[in-house]
C-alpha cells in the first residue's frame, strides 16, 4: 500500500512535468529538453527567496512566476528564431539551453547538493502499522490536481484556450481568423515552464535536493511518461506519469532502486514497439 501511494505521489510530479512537455510539443513539435534545467533555475530563485524571507510560500510563488517569465523569454528570445525546417534544430537548441542554464547555475550557486525545504512533513501517516502517505504527498496530489483542472478549464472553457488549440494545430488558418499565433506560442511556453517549475518545487524537497542537474533524472522519467501517454495527449501525459511513478515505486520496492531505471527503459521500448503514438493517443490515419 505504501509503495502504491509513494508511486502515485512521484507519478503526480512526473505527470505535471510530462504535461509541460506535451504543452510545448503540441504547439511547436519540439521536445523541450531544457524543461528540467529551466525548472531547476526557477526553483533556485524560489528557494533563495524562501531562505531570505523565511516564507516558503513566497518562494513558491516566485518560482512559479519565474517559470512563467523564463518560459516566455525562452520562446521570444531563443526558440522563435529556430529554423523549423528540420525537427533536430529545435532539439539541438534546447540541449544548448540545458548547457547554458546548468553552467550558469553552477557558476552562481555552486555544484554541491543543497537541501530543499518541504512545506509539510514528509513522514507518512500509518494506519494499522502500515505507512501510507505524508502531508507532503497530499500537498503534491492537491497541487498537481489543481493545475490539471485549471489547464483543462483553460483549454476547454475559455476563448484563449480555444485559440491556443487552434494556433497549435493550424497556425496559418488561425492567423486568417485573427489569432495572434506568436502570442499564443509565448503563452504556451510560459504556462509549460510554470508547470515545470511547479513540478520542480514538488520533487526537489524529496531526496533530490537542489543541484543544477537535479531534474535530469526527473526529465527522463517524465519524458518516458509523456511518450507512454502519447506526446499529443494531455490526459495521456498525466496517466503516463502515474504509470511511470507506480512502476518506479514497485520496482524499487521489490527489486531494488538500481533496477528502476531499467524498468522505465523497458516500458519505453515496449510502448514504442507496440503503440508508437502512446497508450492514450488516437489512432493515426494512414494514407495508402
Amino acid at each position: 500500500m505504501f509503495l502504491t501511494f509513494d508511486g502515485l505521489s512521484r507519478g503526480a510530479v512526473y505527470a505535471a512535468f510530462a504535461l509541460a512537455l506535451v504543452l510545448i510539443w503540441r504547439a511547436t513539435r519540439i521536445v523541450n529538453f531544457a524543461q528540467g534545467a529551466m525548472a531547476v533555475a526557477t526553483a533556485y530563485a524560489g528557494f533563495e527567496v524562501s531562505a531570505a524571507t523565511g516564507s516558503y510560500w513566497l518562494g513558491f510563488a516566485v518560482a512559479i512566476a519565474a517559470g512563467l517569465i523564463l518560459g516566455a523569454v525562452t520562446e521570444r528570445v531563443v526558440m522563435r528564431f529556430v529554423d523549423h525546417s528540420s525537427p533536430l534544430n529545435g532539439v539541438v537548441v534546447a540541449l544548448g539551453l540545458v548547457l547554458v542554464i546548468q553552467g550558469g547555475l553552477g557558476m552562481i550557486f555552486g555544484s554541491e547538493f543543497r537541501p530543499a525545504e518541504a512545506p509539510f512533513s514528509r513522514d507518512a501517516f500509518t494506519v494499522g502499522g502500515v505507512a501510507l502517505l505524508s502531508r507532503f504527498d497530499l500537498f503534491v496530489f492537491a497541487a498537481v490536481g489543481i493545475v490539471v483542472v485549471l489547464l483543462a478549464l483553460l483549454f476547454t472553457r475559455t476563448h484563449t484556450g480555444l485559440r491556443m488549440r487552434a494556433a497549435a494545430f493550424a497556425p496559418d488558418v488561425s492567423r486568417l481568423l485573427g489569432v495572434n499565433v506568436s502570442g499564443m506560442l509565448t503563452l504556451g511556453w510560459a504556462l509549460a515552464a510554470a508547470v515545470g517549475s511547479l513540478a520542480g518545487m514538488l520533487v526537489l524537497p524529496t531526496e533530490l535536493g537542489l543541484h543544477p542537474n537535479a531534474m535530469d533524472i526527473v526529465f527522463v522519467s517524465s519524458f518516458t511518461a509523456a511518450v507512454v501517454g502519447g506526446l499529443d495527449s494531455a490526459i495521456g501525459s498525466v496517466l503516463g506519469g502515474l504509470i511511470v511513478g507506480l512502476l518506479l515505486s514497485y520496482v524499487s520496492g521489490y527489486l531494488g532502486a538500481t533496477v528502476a531505471p531499467i524498468a522505465v527503459l523497458i516500458l519505453l521500448v515496449v510502448v514504442l514497439l507496440g503503440r508508437p503514438g502512446g497508450l492514450f493517443s488516437r489512432s493515426a490515419a494512414r494514407t495508402v
Binding site: 476563448h159 487552434a166 494545430f169 493550424a170 481568423l177 485573427g178 489569432v179
Partner: peptide
C-alpha cells in the same frame, strides 16, 4: 481547412 479536433461551433468561435 477546418480544425479537426474542434467541434463545428468551436471552429466558428476561434474567430
Amino acid at each position: 481547412g477546418l480544425f479537426p479536433s474542434l467541434t463545428v461551433l468551436e471552429n466558428v468561435l476561434v474567430g
